[in-house]
Lab assay of single mutants.
Amino acid sequence: VGDQVLEIVPSNEEQIKNLLQLEAQEHLQLDFWKSPTTPGETAHVRVPFVNVQAVKVFLESQGIAYSIMIED
């Protein structure tokens, strides 16, 4: 199991704000291929294997929908 690319769908401005804060966490080494800008629009982010669980827990705790787009 390696890195994953998640497709994330924020449903409101609050969730977009939370994702932008997540993007700013440099220690997570997230690679946003497509940043969140509009509710209902997908964002794509590559998550290093060591941080996959932490990111998924965060998304679930914020009620942000996501799916695994690419499993490496």
Rank of each mutant, 00 (worst) to 15 (best):
V1P: 12
V1F: 11
G2Q: 10
G2E: 10
G2I: 10
D3Y: 15
D3K: 06
D3I: 10
Q4P: 07
Q4L: 14
Q4A: 12
Q4K: 06
Q4S: 07
Q4G: 04
V5A: 04
V5K: 04
V5W: 15
V5R: 04
V5Y: 11
L6H: 00
L6K: 00
L6Q: 01
E7S: 14
E7V: 14
E7G: 05
I8F: 04
I8C: 05
I8E: 00
I8R: 00
I8T: 01
V9L: 11
P10E: 01
P10D: 01
P10N: 01
P10Q: 01
P10C: 12
P10R: 01
S11C: 14
N12F: 02
N12S: 08
E13P: 08
E14A: 09
E14W: 07
Q15F: 01
Q15M: 04
Q15R: 00
Q15G: 03
Q15T: 02
I16L: 12
I16Y: 05
I16E: 01
I16F: 07
K17G: 06
K17R: 12
N18C: 15
N18R: 11
L19H: 00
L19Q: 00
L20I: 09
L20T: 05
L20E: 05
Q21P: 01
Q21S: 10
Q21I: 12
Q21Y: 14
L22P: 03
L22K: 03
L22C: 04
E23I: 14
E23F: 14
A24W: 13
A24K: 11
A24D: 07
A24Q: 12
E26A: 11
E26G: 15
E26S: 12
H27E: 11
H27W: 12
L28A: 03
L28K: 03
L28E: 02
Q29C: 13
Q29D: 09
Q29H: 15
Q29E: 06
Q29W: 06
Q29K: 14
L30Q: 01
L30G: 02
L30S: 03
D31H: 15
F32N: 02
F32E: 02
W33A: 09
W33P: 04
W33H: 08
W33V: 14
W33E: 12
W33G: 05
K34E: 11
K34D: 14
S35P: 15
P36M: 05
P36V: 08
P36C: 04
P36I: 07
P36A: 12
T37Y: 06
T38Y: 09
T38D: 06
T38V: 13
T38G: 08
P39A: 06
P39K: 04
G40D: 03
G40T: 03
G40I: 02
G40E: 03
G40V: 02
E41S: 07
E41N: 07
E41I: 07
E41L: 06
T42A: 12
T42M: 06
A43R: 03
A43N: 05
A43H: 07
A43C: 15
A43D: 01
A43I: 15
H44E: 08
H44M: 15
H44F: 15
H44I: 15
V45M: 09
V45W: 02
V45L: 15
R46I: 08
R46F: 11
R46L: 11
R46W: 08
R46S: 08
V47M: 02
V47N: 01
P48F: 03
P48S: 07
P48H: 05
P48G: 05
P48R: 05
F49Q: 14
F49W: 11
F49T: 10
F49L: 13
V50L: 12
V50K: 12
V50S: 11
V50E: 14
N51P: 01
N51V: 08
N51R: 04
N51Y: 13
N51I: 06
V52I: 13
V52F: 11
V52R: 03
Q53L: 10
Q53H: 12
Q53S: 10
Q53A: 12
A54K: 10
A54Y: 15
A54F: 13
A54Q: 09
V55S: 00
V55K: 00
V55R: 00
K56R: 10
K56H: 05
K56C: 10
V57M: 14
V57C: 13
V57Q: 14
V57S: 13
V57F: 13
F58L: 05
F58H: 04
F58A: 04
F58D: 01
F58K: 02
L59E: 00
E60Y: 03
E60F: 03
E60D: 10
E60C: 04
S61A: 13
S61P: 00
S61L: 12
S61E: 11
Q62A: 13
Q62R: 14
G63Q: 07
G63I: 02
G63T: 03
I64G: 00
I64L: 04
I64V: 03
I64K: 00
I64F: 04
A65D: 08
A65P: 13
A65V: 09
A65E: 10
Y66L: 01
Y66P: 00
Y66N: 01
M69S: 05
I70V: 11
I70T: 11
I70E: 10
E71C: 15
E71I: 05
E71H: 07
D72K: 12
D72H: 13
D72W: 15
